[in-house]
Design a protein around this nucleic acid. Structure first.
Lengths: 336, 336
DNA sequence: CGTAACAAATGAAACGATTCAAAGACGAGT
DNA sequence: ACTCGTCTTTGAATCGTTTCATTTGTTACG
């Protein structure tokens, strides 16, 4: 009684066979009203709870989907995760979230863990090149969908946002408002960041006399942004850029904190600032932050849809969905 | 080959017994160097991956800890969750996060789910009164720790922060800066919110001529805050409160958005504003937001520690840890 | 009354790991 | 040569479900 009852205990208590109890649970139509009631009564009395491990073992597969993100603390990813969870719940699945923290070994750790759990499928925002491992997974029947990263359509599915276009939009906007000396803040070792930078450089290339310098940040957090901001403040005013494009909003908010802390720099008059992701907090920043909005909700939902397609096709058909980002102009980049 | 190999396949391939393979995996010391190497080679060649479901079934318990929070989108909870995950990882466990969204039925759903998974234990920020269910869980050998909620020490363990004290600190601070007509924004149906309100009312009671009105918000989000803020703006200036205490930072940021949108209200001159939680974004708000800081990191870590204690004692010994919140003063409540 | 047709209930056989009592191998000591 | 002790290895039993070929029960019909 103290410990959990098994289906066998229920069967004994209700005076039926174990198969019947299982049928009550999984195929109620196959069981007569009378016995069904009796079994359900026993289940309630014994406080029986299905043992999922046993069910999975028999089924050979869990009802779990693994999701590996680069940083759950980043509202962009938590939003994608939430959308994925909701979409999965509608299919009767549960999403397990792993945070790689942009570290390949933690990423590998979660991939191993999810394999042991025999997840239905894997959604992953890869840190480095994981194509080899994904091939292995596919061979083993674990469909995989890349999230926020474009894939070869002949290898696996993916949902992503056109980062280069986003970077272009951001830089173009800064240039359109008259700024010429731009700076880019981020860690270009991350693919998304590199693409955004590339897009920005393309926009700069289209305007004569425009330039963009790259400021490498130690991470993609508010704190890292604050550090970069401090360095900017230390520079003599004429050496500061006229506009700063940060590879995400956390960095941008950090930079903003540093710049506004000392009252010598004004945003957007002295330095315009634009971020990326358009997280909820961007609008309520010291100076409402311009940003590039990504459809997080659609990303998460579509990732689950593609995973379902992969499963149905047995991992043979792949599809890539690319969303287009959108410029959101606020006060931080108001006309010079 | 395409599908995953079992321990039996490995045994056949390496020409040893299944028990030996298991020993290589779990008790490497019991196996001779020679066979160990042979088995490991076979494991690599067959691409064997342990089936966690089978292991759990045999073990009778998973290496998973369930965590049910009120809102993962709230940085307060995501921070607690992260700390718990890190602490659990150190013990070789994984944390599964469920979001109740302050809805009892979703909360119940996750409790059922976690029971089916035979989690090691449960950490929960309860929506309503779950003491009955927790008693049931304890009987079934699932230790539970309340998070952000004080428990009867003779029933289960808990980690929390003194919400009444936090509410008192916030209101006291507003009163200390000369404000008298206060407003409280939140949904007092949630226990934490009710306690914070109670603390605030105590502070108000200590000052003659001070008053506090309660503005019920539809939720605890930025959006809900914005709605309350809009109502405040609609009021004639003399009917507006002199200071607003929001039950969390999301609400406060929402209120701030509404108030600053129309340029008629100045923060802190016309209305002072203080939030709760001191999330990372509070400092970079339009007007840097005063708040009540809670030790999220310690909450998550301690929750796991208490769970471990519960497990060791077999669910007989309970302990409650209460942290003290801390006032963080920023510009949004600068002297009147 | 016999039997065909269908519905309901049965229970043994998986699933894949871990455990543990027992057997086997080997060297040392007498 | 024999026994004892130590170190390895073995393989059947077990965990709690689901599945499915069979059996049992019931009704309808010629």
């Amino acid at each position: 009684m103290s410990q959990t009852a098994s289906i066998k205990d229920v069967a004994t208590h209700a005076q039926v066979a174990v198969g019947t109890v299982s049928n009550v649970l999984n195929y109620p139509d196959r069981v007569s009203q009378r016995t069904k009631e009796r079994v359900l009564k026993s289940i309630a009395e014994l406080g029986f709870v299905r043992n999922d491990a046993a069910r999975q073992l028999r089924a050979g597969q869990s009802r779990t989907i693994g999701l590996i993100v680069l940083d759950v603390g980043n509202p962009f990813f938590s939003s994608v995760a939430r959308a994925a969870e909701d979409a999965a719940a509608a299919l009767g699945s549960v999403v397990l979230v792993g945070d790689s923290g942009q570290d390949s070994s933690r990423e590998a750790h979660y991939m191993d863990l999810f394999q042991e759990q025999r997840v239905q499928g894997l959604l992953i925002s890869p840190v480095g090149d994981v194509s080899g491992r994904i091939d292995t997974l596919r061979e083993r029947g674990v469909p995989t969908v890349l999230v926020d990263e474009l894939a070869d359509t002949d290898r696996c599915s993916s949902v992503s946002v056109d980062d280069q276009e986003g970077g272009y939009l951001a830089a173009k906007h800064l240039l359109d408002t008259g700024r010429r000396r731009l700076a880019f803040v981020g860690t270009p070792t991350i693919r998304q960041v590199a693409s955004r930078l590339k897009g920005a450089q393309r926009a700069v290339g289209e305007v004569t006399g425009a330039s963009i310098e790259v400021l490498d940040s130690a991470g993609q957090t508010v704190l890292a942004g604050r550090q970069v901001g401090n360095k900017l403040v230390e520079r003599s005013p004429e050496k500061r850029p006229e506009a700063v494009f940060c590879s995400n909003d956390l960095l941008a908010l950090g930079v903003m904190q540093s710049l506004t802390m000392l009252r010598t720099v004004r945003i957007p008059e002295d330095i315009a600032l634009i971020g990326y992701d358009d997280i909820d907090f961007a609008i309520s920043a010291v100076v409402p932050l311009s940003s590039i909005r990504q459809p997080t909700e659609a990303l998460g939902r579509t990732a689950i849809e593609l995973l379902a397609e992969e499963q149905e096709s047995g991992g043979t058909k792949h599809r890539s969905v690319v969303f287009t980002p959108e410029l959101v102009v606020r006060q931080s980049t108001a006309g010079a």
